[in-house]
Design a protein around this nucleic acid. Structure first.
Lengths: 234, 234
DNA sequence: TTATTTCTCATCTTTTTTATTACAAGTTAT
DNA sequence: ATAACTTGTAATAAAAAAGATGAGAAATAA
């Protein structure tokens, strides 16, 4: 019998190219934005595309997605979640290839501008997204639906805001994601009622003369509440 | 330049074994069950495993999952949804291989018994699931969580019941999935209030002397409601 | 007749959601 | 100073949804 490390029981099985593409959301001045870049390889070299990469032999799929995000934005440790597998046989005209799409939420002021430019990447407002290669526009549509669904019952919106944010900022984020207008008094009441926002002593004066108090989201408290069955809703 | 169909721009990229594993839920007499089988290939030949297969070059991933389900149960056209990608580099001790897990909901009286036995498959109550190969027990845990989550805001529970079912059956299904006791009067009131159950003239007398009226779920009506923003809740 | 499950009906309470009125606080621009 | 604007607090009213409970009728097997 062969040594264990050389034993390959699946030798006759079909291998496939595996890629990951990342839908990167950012929130800037009331507008939801997405990061796309000019593709560097054929086919479709030079066309707009989601950022992505093939998955290497020695990394897991989420590791590959994190690698891509680090490469393109210089950011580490950001919200990243698997979205969906795209695997139609003819989805890539280069060669049969499946893609495991992920969506990421980043604080748009944190990314490394040089890194982004270096890779030919650019932010587009959601409504201005150009035609992208392959099935990437469909991926964005799915990601947006997921973001809307997810933000209504999980507190992930904070991942799109600076660590310190104001209540009006938070409200405008929800309004941008869900395309609605919300009542400011009721929104404030509801959000504060969870007891998950920590009020700071500082104010943000960028949007008003009076200035609005800054808050932090209490991740620790949320984690405890979540374990005991708490549900964040809207 | 080569002919287009031979042109392979990704020639130097790493290819990976891609599999799919299916968590198959069934509901039988008040108990949630799962279909597992004795693995036929090394490593771990003969041990309990989820049903699954490698993904072929000429099929999409969901097609592969549907093929597996048809093979093992003789069933076509059943509820099947992508769960999660399992891709740890060393998750399979045979060779590097990623698996795209799916979960399926079947009407447990519909499956083909011969087909199931032929493949060495067997139903286990949720609490009696044995130790499975690789990360399959983790997949089940994730699938169960997803099922609980999903059934609270999408009407997918019906996929586990016969097409004609009674309200008490439906209630016992929800009780089994969520491990709770529900009040029969309130449960009935709530479910009927959606207006999505079509009452039939037949009764099911298997569980009581009086017999309980059979209902069908109105998929068409639900689809319309869903499009106009309706949310099925609990 | 008795026991059991199914089914209806009517409350009642509590909680949640939504809408609205009123107004004060802080600051800048005029 | 005051007008204008955003932020923030309070109170409340109305409406809708959720949850708990009591009472009892219908069907039928044993």
């Amino acid at each position: 019998m062969k040594a264990l490390e050389n034993y390959r029981p699946y030798i006759a099985q079909p291998k496939i190219l595996v890629a990951t593409d990342c839908i990167v959301f950012g929130f800037d001045e009331g507008i939801l934005k997405l990061l796309v870049f000019r593709r560097r390889i054929d086919p479709f070299k030079g066309e707009w595309s989601l950022i992505g990469s093939f998955v290497n032999e020695e990394e897991s799929v989420p590791d590959a997605a994190r690698r891509v995000l680090l490469q393109f934005t210089g950011l580490d440790n950001i919200f990243l979640e698997e979205l969906k597998v795209y695997s139609d046989v003819d989805r890539d005209s280069g060669e049969r290839c499946i893609s495991i799409a992920h969506y990421a939420l980043i604080r748009i002021n944190d990314y490394d501008r040089e890194q982004v430019e270096l890779h030919g990447a650019k932010w587009f407002a959601l409504e201005d997204i150009p035609q992208l290669v392959l099935d990437h526009n469909a991926m964005i549509a799915d990601a947006l639906e997921r973001l809307r669904q997810k933000t209504t019952h999980r507190p992930i919106g904070f991942e799109l805001l600076p660590e310190k944010f104001t209540i009006p900022q938070l409200q405008s984020l929800y309004e941008a994601i869900h395309q609605t207008k919300l009542d400011d008094r009721n929104f404030r009441k509801k959000l504060l009622s969870f007891g998950l926002l920590i009020k700071l002593d500082e104010k943000d004066k960028s949007t008003s003369k009076k200035g609005a108090f800054l808050y932090r989201f209490d991740y620790n408290k949320y984690k405890k509440l979540e374990e005991s069955g708490f549900n964040f809703v809207l």
